[in-house]
């Protein structure tokens, strides 16, 4: 990653908000879909909004409402939804070298989603230490509020919205792969990392298309890591 420290012209939280704006293209359509499906599954508008506010994890929420609506045992619902989120265990440790000892980081970990992790992992090393808390707060809070607002919109008027503007669901979500792409492409600065990144991405595509979307991210990431360790001492592709 580019670790050149940047100076910020404005307040750090404003830069965080600005950097997180591309996330909205992915968050809002998915949140609208969740709001719609949740209400159709029998949850009230308020319950739906509370689910998004406090669980705040896309795949888990969809699984939660689907399993709850199908009458699955609740202990199984809890275990399955937490298992889906198990990949998050590596996010905090990866960011921790860039965060100071401020206690405000603790509640902010609620906002550490896949997308915020990807964004923070690329941006925090580039920011001066004193700007990181404000930057992360701006980015994470915008993403959280957009998720809640999108959910509310979907729960209240999702059916009509997606019927009238189907492109909301079809076009805007492309912002997510585009975002991940610009976050990961600077890492491809040598053959070893290029191969590692390529294998992770291709494996994820194959797993998702094969019907395993929930294990695609951890398994694809592990396959890339295995390749990295297998090749790192090979002189042709090595880092040095």
């Amino acid at each position: 990653m580019n670790t050149t420290t940047q100076t910020l012209a404005g307040a750090p939280w404003k830069q965080g908000v600005k950097d997180a704006i591309p996330l909205l293209g992915g968050y809002i359509p998915v949140a609208i879909s969740f709001g719609l499906i949740s209400v159709q599954s029998g949850f009230s508008v308020l319950e739906t909004i509370l689910i998004s506010t406090f669980i705040y994890a896309g795949a888990s929420q969809f699984l939660f409402v689907a399993m709850a609506a199908s009458g699955a045992p609740l202990w199984l619902v809890v275990i399955m939804t937490l298992l889906i989120n198990a990949r998050h265990v590596v996010y905090g440790p990866n960011l921790s070298p860039f965060l100071n000892q401020d206690k405000k980081w603790l509640p902010l970990m609620h906002g550490l989603t896949d997308q915020i992790f990807a964004l923070a992992h690329a941006r925090l090393p580039q920011l001066p230490g004193q700007a990181r808390l404000g930057w992360y707060t701006g980015a994470a809070v915008l993403a959280w509020l957009s998720w809640i607002a999108g959910t509310a919109l979907g729960a209240i008027a999702g059916g009509e919205l997606t019927q009238r503007w189907p492109l909301i669901n079809d076009v805007l979500p492309f912002a997510l792969p585009a975002l991940f792409f610009v976050l990961i492409i600077p890492r491809c600065n040598n053959r070893l990392w290029s191969l590692t990144i390529a294998l992770s991405a291709v494996t994820a595509v194959i797993l998702k298309m094969s019907g395993y979307p929930n294990v695609a991210i951890p398994l694809a990431a592990m396959s890339g890591a295995v390749l990295f360790f297998a090749l790192k001492n090979q002189p042709i592709v090595g880092e040095h």
Partner: peptide, 19 residues
Amino acid sequence: WLTILGPTMIAAMFGTSLV
């Protein structure tokens, strides 16, 4: 292994979101 998993996780997210 943890520093490797960070970028590979992002690459995997890129892959899944690409479909």
